[in-house]
Design a protein around this nucleic acid. Sequence first.
DNA 1: TATTTTTGCATCGTGAACGATATAAATCTG
DNA 2: CAGATTTATATCGTTCACGATGCAAAAATA
Lengths: 147, 147
Amino acid sequence: MEYEQLKLNNQLCFRLYTAARLTVGAYHPYLDPLGITYPQYLVLLVLWEQDKQPVCDIAARLMLDTNTVTPLLQRMEKSGLLLRTKGKTDTRQRIVSLTEKGLTMREQAKHIPECLSASILEKMDSVEELATLVPALDKLIEGLSER
Amino acid sequence: MEYEQLKLNNQLCFRLYTAARLTVGAYHPYLDPLGITYPQYLVLLVLWEQDKQPVCDIAARLMLDTNTVTPLLQRMEKSGLLLRTKGKTDTRQRIVSLTEKGLTMREQAKHIPECLSASILEKMDSVEELATLVPALDKLIEGLSER
DNA sequence: TATTTTTGCATCGTGAACGATATAAATCTG
DNA sequence: CAGATTTATATCGTTCACGATGCAAAAATA
């Protein structure tokens, strides 16, 4: 079969692309009430771990470029989740810090991970197969991100 | 640790989201010369398997909605890869068919899957771990897509 | 110190995703 | 068959993702 490899079902990337879309979609019921999107949730996760970070650190953590993160942060600033203040030691930097609203949202978001785990595990029996995903994805990400 | 689950490193979805982005990015060196994007490549894969399909079938195959697929197909029509003709039996349908350009691109795209496998495997040693991804992702997709 | 290079961030344009909504045709139902 | 419902597609608005480019500040180098 000359074109066998060009079949959709044989493609790993399509699975990743679809699984990622569907998984992000599974967050909607929990993020919509908070008025945030999934990428915005990711930014909050990073800032909840460590507040007051420059844009480049947040971008590095999410493995995104600043041209994606900057507008994202601008939208989040506009919705009152964070502030972007000029850096003191390095004036090129913008230090991103959580507002009261951004900080307190952590409490409301506390149960999202377990809710999501539950809703996923409810729909698929094999917990083990899910667990095998993590190290394999980590290896894939590591391989694809090195330059 | 009350907020332990809110750590980025503990989140499966972030891994999927990142792995998908990076993998799609790995297609760029091969798709750019053809002048197509990854989602456009997916549409071509579907049409190469079976030409002349209505929009809804293509959307179903890619697990996307028509509001994503329609503009995608419109762009592809504009770049001369396919045609969208009114259905005969059901005039609501748009039958999507490949043009000469869309058909011949199959030949040029023939080696993309193996190129990509090679470039991924080159960067990560464990083939087995990659292989375990496929059934796990299939199960995840199946679980998340059922309604 | 003057010049070059790098770094941090921003802006612009394009293509996706996707919720909400619209419209016409097909189908179902009374 | 008439009216209600469903189906197939399209349009609109918002948010991302990302390549390309710009700019000013910092760092490196001459």
